[in-house]
Nucleic acid binder design. Structure first.
Lengths: 242, 242
DNA sequence: CGTTTAATTGAACACAATCAAGCCCTGTGG
DNA sequence: CCACAGGGCTTGATTGTGTTCAATTAAACG
């Protein structure tokens, strides 16, 4: 649970005992394949998952089966704090790429939540930041055009990866197909393709097969109308420094 | 703080002491006017607010000043658990109608969060449900057409009001102008007007001046593709019954 | 009453969806 | 080694939903 601990320590100051309690959490690591479900809408929740490596995404479906991607998750992210005290999952989480996922019994996390209030605070902040990201996506879908939306989602991904300082260069590519990007931006696959071509023609992104690499995400910022306030990174580094 | 207590008791089982602690929270009630800011983006947070009566909304602006409404709040809602442990507000909350708002020092809520884990749990669940609502709005804006979007937002409002069992018939109208509804649905004001006219012509809604009443929100459900799972109401009543 | 805010309407336009077809890889099996 | 299948990407043509601009009407409020 080193990754989870690293995540939580960015959010609150944990004492030695708190930290040990997190490291002592019972955990089973499972290797999942791309597109495997981590959580399925409508199912009862009895585990909390942490993404060890690879990428994952949240999704919700309309009644007639259209998909909307709600969030993209990177290694170290907790995938299921959203359901820590909700009994039925209201949305699904699926793997974007193959990768190991740590499964922790929900009851163990709940116990820690009640016993160690600093841990509770760290988990709480984690959920608050997730909520802030959802809000930014509402703005993105509601008030930005296709080009900005696409750029915004790419910027967010890049910045979050950068903050986690992944060593592996594979972890700097966005491993999404154009169809998935369309479902994240609320566009049709055809239009997503055209937007991506435009961005590529300006050298703002470099699409490969099922991957997108970004030479310099900072160039995308202006197009994306990107302002990282909603990620609350300053608070993160602040806590780190202490 | 009776309203806040009622809200929290719907989310977790609080013992006598927990309940008394909530009732003992220091609080200042201020009468706010329509459009007054409760929280302003970019400002430091030092209070938690609870809406006593009237309605409020969250909003976020793009760089070029376009507004997106993120959520609508009804009496009893906590307006600022979203910032309980985040130092700078990443979005604004504004009054929709005039009404009293209870201001509680953030530090007092934080203290209770650390001291009483059942209270922490109730607050946490409150935030989880807010996050679930944001997710549904992402789906709404990303994958539904104008008509469904509008119907969906109205359905959500009606159902939430119904669950709170407001006595006052004034509290069953949605007090939003067409421009505000446009900003909530990600539409232009002109198109929002046309969608509302269509819905009104089918007797699904009844627009007055700055208000919309709904003869029977159940009729809107099919158009809205509305499924209340994301509001986690069953869990609410479950906890109530115990 | 005059002013303001909200609602309404029409016309022209634009962004994005849809439909349909074809391409280019990559993996698979004969 | 080649044929073929399938997924993902690309492209053009057409349609349509929703925007923009501009002007008007209606309703509240001082």
């Amino acid at each position: 649970m080193g990754l989870l601990l690293r995540n939580l320590k960015q959010r609150a100051i944990l004492c030695e005992e708190d930290q040990q309690a997190v490291l002592d959490l019972p955990v089973v690591i499972k290797a999942l394949s791309a597109n495997d479900y981590v959580i399925r809408e409508g199912e009862d929740v009895d585990c909390c998952e942490v993404l060890v490596s690879g990428f994952a995404f949240r999704q919700l479906l309309t009644g007639d089966g259209q998909r909307q991607i709600l969030a993209i998750h990177i290694p170290g992210d907790a995938l299921d704090f959203q359901n820590l005290f909700l009994d039925v999952a209201d949305h699904s989480v699926q793997m974007l790429t193959a990768g190991p996922v740590a499964f922790v019994p929900r009851a163990a996390i709940q116990r820690l939540f009640h016993k160690r209030s600093r841990f509770a605070q760290a988990v709480f902040i984690n959920v608050l930041v997730d909520a802030a990201i959802f809000r930014e996506w509402v703005l993105n879908l509601g008030r930005r055009d296709a080009r900005s939306r696409m750029a915004h989602i790419i910027c967010e991904f890049m910045l979050r990866c950068e903050m986690m300082q992944f060593n592996d260069p594979d972890n700097r590519d966005l491993p999404m197909t154009q169809e998935q990007l369309a479902d994240a931006t609320g566009l049709s696959a055809v239009h997503a393709n055209r937007v991506l071509r435009d961005l590529a023609s300006e050298n703002l992104i470099q699409p490969h097969r099922g991957h997108i690499s970004i030479p310099d995400w900072r160039k995308l910022r202006a197009i994306a109308d990107f302002n990282e306030r909603y990620l609350h990174l300053s608070q993160q580094t602040l806590s780190n420094d202490i």
